[in-house]
Design a protein around this nucleic acid. Sequence first.
DNA 1: GCCGTATTTCATCGTTTGTTGAAAATTAGC
DNA 2: GCTAATTTTCAACAAACGATGAAATACGGC
Lengths: 201, 201
Amino acid sequence: MTTASEPKRRGRRAGGADTKAVLLDAAREVFIERGYEGATVRAIAAKAGVDAAMVNHWYGSKENLFAQAVLKLPFDPTELVKRLLDGPPEETGERIVRNFIGVWDASGGGPFVALLRSVTSHDGVATMMREFFLNNVFRRITEKLVVDQAELRAALCASQVVGMGLTRYVVRFEPFASADVEVVVGAVGPNLQRYLTGKIG
Amino acid sequence: MTTASEPKRRGRRAGGADTKAVLLDAAREVFIERGYEGATVRAIAAKAGVDAAMVNHWYGSKENLFAQAVLKLPFDPTELVKRLLDGPPEETGERIVRNFIGVWDASGGGPFVALLRSVTSHDGVATMMREFFLNNVFRRITEKLVVDQAELRAALCASQVVGMGLTRYVVRFEPFASADVEVVVGAVGPNLQRYLTGKIG
DNA sequence: GCCGTATTTCATCGTTTGTTGAAAATTAGC
DNA sequence: GCTAATTTTCAACAAACGATGAAATACGGC
């Protein structure tokens, strides 16, 4: 068996860097930049400074590497929802915008762009986005707010939030893409709030 | 010269169908379904029922075929803008939603999905989306409405509209994806209207 | 019916893709 | 220092890609 679930590290390379981790970081970068199909195993290995065969040695396949590097959530959605619900209910929309833009901006929009860039070429990315945005985040929020049409409201919020990400990080509609966080909060927040607690009929 | 800008049709094949046009339709379908990189010249030719070499014979390259089949607008933006502005200004948001959803639904979301599926793998798609949504549509609308922050308002509208498309056709957030057009109009229209003429500061 | 051109077919080229297995290099345990 | 396990390198594989050019076919003009 060479798939190496958890190496017992008998040998180690000169640089001392952990190849498996370096490979994961490089993979994340390249997947973000080029999407699943656009990212080649050789390009990932090159960015990591190792041989291409290391990918299959440490992760078995490109597919599995993608799952580890991109598909796996880097944080706990429960914590995020708690933060979004913490405060006046009538300001939930603004908090949602502030949080998402804040997190995404901090990483240059990376994780979101990675998902979107691969939503075409990799089965399961769309499912994963549904799972996250709808079931793990917005559905839980509309649940707590006790409103009618909870599912539709959640989907509406998701539509505005992913649209925000698409606009700001991928297609880059100016001046929205470069606008200050608080400008976006002031603009989008109230609309999100209407989706959450307003009249949508 | 064999690139055939406008063939003088000396010869014709048994079926009588115009290969160039058949190829264009097949290309549009496959590009929509698999994106630029995912769509192979051979798959397009197969769907058109012709040899793969026909692609290069009639269009020179896969690149050019993509431009002809997907990148080229199938309609006049000016006409669309006129339609969107025709009516009470306070209902512009609703008209925008009704029009876009109407057009997209009629084609199963095809054109929009094609753009989004290829926004990763083909240079110029993002530029083309900016050109269309911002400069050709929403920027012209906010211009006519004579409002402050016209650029930002246009970008905000674009963010909601592309988010709508992404949600309804690509990631398919339910129940939004299957909702009746008028439900979407009632839900999203007012938000779009606020982006157009409301207070966004 | 012949000729020239347009169209189509076919075989094939040169790359690039993910993946594999054997050999080489490196390190820990003793 | 020897051994065994691990990690890395290297060469190569089969498959699929876009593209090309020559040969074969179909058809209108005459």
